[in-house]
Every structure is written in structure tokens, then in C-alpha cells.
């Protein structure tokens, strides 16, 4: 079986393994053929978020993808490549802090029901693998976009009854935030945990409107666009 890996140029490796995950194949190449190949891995079981790469242009976790003959493996998009399949996630993760993706205070006396917990159960499954970040087309035009995983994280906290200052959370995500998303849904399609950041961003938009914010794409045109409310581009 042949597998193509994007390094400085595309390198083709021949491996005699069938029905293996991409991570198992990368380990085999590293330990038996070419020790210089660089990639990241950790848990092997889809929870540590280390091994996201692109295969045939689609983001996958190397530990959760079964390799097909002729696959092309590349590093994630929208992040600087350090070496081979390893990317620098510092800037991507810095958006969690910029978006203030945390509970704003320590809260002891709010009791959550079973239903309350279910509201953001899926969002709190996020493993920060960066697949959504890589798939997001907004970075082509706005490098400072808070991005899908950070906004999902904000929704996780905003939707939690233990968050007592929801307004501050919503205030923080107005610039380079919820209105910069094109709702293209690319993030949803690549998430290994079944999270839809696009849907979370829509919920954050609805919450923003409740706090008096408007979609700046409309606002900048005043009453622009058709009277039916359709935007003008």
C-alpha cells in the first residue's frame, strides 16, 4: 500500500499493513523506515486531540482514520507548519483566552438538573484537535477570527446556568466573533466529536440579539438591502 505524506515536498511511503489506523501507519514508518518523519500523537483513542491532520483535503484524527491506498496526508490549514505534519497551535489556542472561554466566577449555589447538563454535553466533549479551525474558510480573510472551537467553548459556558455574567461573555464575542462566521458549516463536517460550531455560533448570535446587538453586516447598511431583510453584498 502506498501513502503520500506532505513534507517539504510530497513523499511516498510503501507500507505492508492493512486495516490500520493512520497513526499506526505513521508509527510504522517512523520506527522502521524514516525516523525523521514528524507528527504528533498521544492517547491513540481520540480524546487528546494531538493527531489531527488532513487526509485527501479533509481533517481527520490520525488515530481514528483507516488508511486507504494512495491517501495524501497533509498538516492542518490556518496554522504555521513547524515540521512535516506538526503545526504550531499557540495562536489557534490563544483565541480561547481572547474569547474569554471560561466561567466568569466561581459558583457554589447553582444546582443543575439532568436537562441543564444535557444542554452543553456535546460542546464539552471538545478535544481541541483543531480540525474545525483548519477547515474554517474565514481565516483566509480574517486572521483574528475567534474561530469555531473557541466560540463553541463560549457557548458551552454561556449556556451553563453557573455562568452568572452572560452579558460579558456575549460582549466579548462581537468583534472578530459570531458575526464573522459565514455559517458555511465546514467545521461541523470535520468535527470528530459531532459538535457543530456553526450551530453554536447561531445560538450565540440569537443570544447577542437578545442583549441588543445587531448583525453588523446589516447595520453597516442602515436599512440597506431589500425590505425583506435580505443582505446586500
Amino acid at each position: 500500500m502506498k501513502i503520500n505524506i506532505k513534507r517539504d515536498s510530497i513523499v511516498c511511503y510503501e507500507v505492508n499493513l492493512e486495516n490500520k489506523t493512520l497513526l499506526e501507519i505513521l508509527n510504522d514508518i517512523k520506527t522502521t523506515q524514516d525516523a525523521s518523519l514528524a507528527y504528533s500523537s498521544g492517547c491513540r483513542s481520540g480524546v487528546c486531540g494531538s493527531c489531527a491532520v488532513k487526509v485527501n483535503s479533509k481533517e481527520v484524527l490520525a488515530c481514528s482514520y483507516h488508511v486507504q491506498d494512495g491517501d495524501l496526508v497533509e498538516p492542518l490549514n490556518n496554522t504555521p507548519v513547524i515540521r512535516d505534519l506538526v503545526v504550531d497551535m499557540d495562536k489557534a489556542y490563544s483565541f480561547n483566552a481572547k474569547a474569554k472561554a471560561w466561567q466568569s466566577s466561581i459558583v457554589n449555589n447553582v444546582f443543575l438538573s439532568d436537562e441543564d447538563e444535557k444542554i452543553n454535553e456535546v460542546q464539552s466533549d471538545c478535544i481541541l484537535c483543531g480540525s474545525c479551525y483548519s477547515a474554517c474558510p474565514v481565516y483566509a480573510v480574517n486572521k483574528e477570527f475567534l474561530g469555531p472551537f473557541s466560540l463553541t467553548r463560549v457557548w458551552r459556558y454561556v449556556s451553563d446556568r453557573r455562568e452568572l455574567n452572560k452579558k460579558e461573555k456575549i460582549d466579548t464575542i462581537q468583534t472578530n466573533g459570531v458575526w464573522d462566521c459565514t455559517l458555511c458549516n465546514a467545521c461541523t463536517l470535520v468535527c470528530p466529536q459531532g459538535i457543530s460550531s456553526k450551530a453554536d455560533i447561531e445560538k450565540l448570535r440569537a443570544r447577542s440579539v437578545m442583549f441588543g446587538y445587531m448583525d453588523p453586516n446589516f447595520a453597516s447598511f442602515g436599512f440597506g438591502g431589500g425590505f425583506d431583510g435580505s443582505p446586500v453584498f
Binding site: 471560561w102 466561567q103 466561581i106 459558583v107 457554589n108 444546582f111 443543575l112 438538573s113 439532568d114 441543564d116 447538563e117 452543553n120 454535553e121 464539552s124 458551552r156 459556558y157 451553563d160 453557573r162 455562568e163
Partner: peptide
């Protein structure tokens, strides 16, 4: 556990909100 809960850990809950 109370401290983890206070900083936002999304523990599963029972029907009795525990």
C-alpha cells in the same frame, strides 16, 4: 468535587439534580 463543580465541570446529573 464541590470545587470542580464550582469552576464549571459538567458532571452528569441525576433526575434529582444531583
Amino acid at each position: 468535587v464541590k470545587w470542580l463543580n464550582s469552576i464549571g465541570v459538567p458532571f452528569s446529573r441525576t433526575k434529582e439534580s444531583k
